[in-house]
Amino acid sequence: MRGVFAFLLLFALLPFLPLGVWRAFLLDVGLFVLLFTALALSWDLVARTGQLSLAHGAFFGLGAYGTGLLLPHVGTLPALALGALLAGLGALLLGSVTLRLHGLYFAIASLAFSEVLRTLALKLGFTGGPIGLPVPPPFGGGLPLAGYYLAFAVLALAVALSLWAEKSPFRLAQAACRQSEAVARVLGVRVVRVKLLSLFLGSLVAGLSGGVYAMKALFLSPYEAFSLARAVEALVIPIFGGLYTTLGPLLGGVVLVGLEQALRLWIQEGYLVVYGALLVLAILFLPKGLLGLLGGRRG
């Protein structure tokens, strides 16, 4: 618990630290760490029920496009909230149809959901189609650090939901679903309801992450917003840091997102080769993630 609060305190104080000439770059990296770590925590919340979701890229994209389309009309915070709600409605739609599926079948269905949404974003006129959608900055650009602190707020919400799921009786219901759905039903656990609630909460956080990302990027394309790479990143970070915990995705997000940005700066062409090789080595030799290496207890 102390590690979680230390992480949040560090990023809350980052804009006030003497960062010198690297200030703008480090704050940008910090913003992406916050957003993608929140996305990873939202994926881990679903994974605790035993479901392998590849739809988090879709929830991210729904939040991004919902926020981008509504921002000029309703303002920053209402647009973010409505974009997250759009992602939540997408999760309810997906879950009501597919959550009786298991394992790879659910993963394939969730991937298909992402591809359908990307195709719709490419074909519909009001989304900008393949040309893309320009997005205004938060609060009209009048607050330079608004994007950073919005990203911090999204991560704080993700941490709060993760800790609630980790410390409350809901953890037992999720663990029962993950271990054996048949036994969970015998014990009185409403399996579909637990999975649907987990998916809905995770999608809200993913939608908020997408909305803040849209205001940071200032431009959206369907290939970027609904990217499969986004969904893969959301699952790689918790696996690297430590599954079914709050601290694990926080550690994984800092290391992986920071490493990706550093390699992009230092190596440029071909940085993905080095990044991928490091991930393979980590998965082979750190089966319990960074928490296992540090002697942390898995959730």
Rank of each mutant, 00 (worst) to 15 (best):
A24I: 09
L77R: 00
V97I: 15
L247Q: 08
A160N: 04
V192T: 14
G3S: 05
L31S: 11
F126H: 06
L157S: 09
G68Q: 07
L9T: 12
L86A: 14
P287K: 08
A91L: 10
L19G: 04
A38G: 06
R193A: 15
R264G: 03
G241D: 04
V154M: 08
L263C: 04
F200E: 07
Y244H: 15
S203L: 10
T246E: 06
H73E: 02
A84L: 03
R185E: 15
L278S: 06
V189D: 10
F11C: 03
L196N: 08
L111Y: 15
I237A: 02
V154Y: 02
A156L: 15
H73S: 11
V194K: 14
F285N: 02
Y105M: 05
S53K: 00
H102N: 05
R264E: 06
R230M: 10
L101G: 09
R297V: 14
S221E: 11
G270I: 10
F36I: 01
A55L: 02
V189M: 04
F139M: 10
P15Y: 07
I131T: 14
R230L: 05
L104F: 12
V46N: 06
V194A: 05
Y275V: 09
A156P: 02
A64G: 12
W164A: 15
G295C: 07
G50Y: 07
E269V: 07
L133N: 00
E260D: 11
T76H: 12
G103N: 07
Y271P: 09
L54N: 09
A64Y: 07
Y105Q: 03
Q179K: 02
R185Y: 01
A12R: 04
W266K: 06
T245W: 08
A160R: 03
L161R: 00
G50H: 11
H56V: 06
F285P: 00
D28M: 01
A58P: 05
Y244P: 01
Q268A: 14
R100C: 12
E269Y: 07
F16C: 04
S53P: 05
A153H: 04
P238D: 01
A262Y: 14
T76C: 07
P249K: 03
P136M: 00
P134Q: 05
L265Q: 10
R185N: 01
Y244C: 08
F219R: 03
L294V: 04
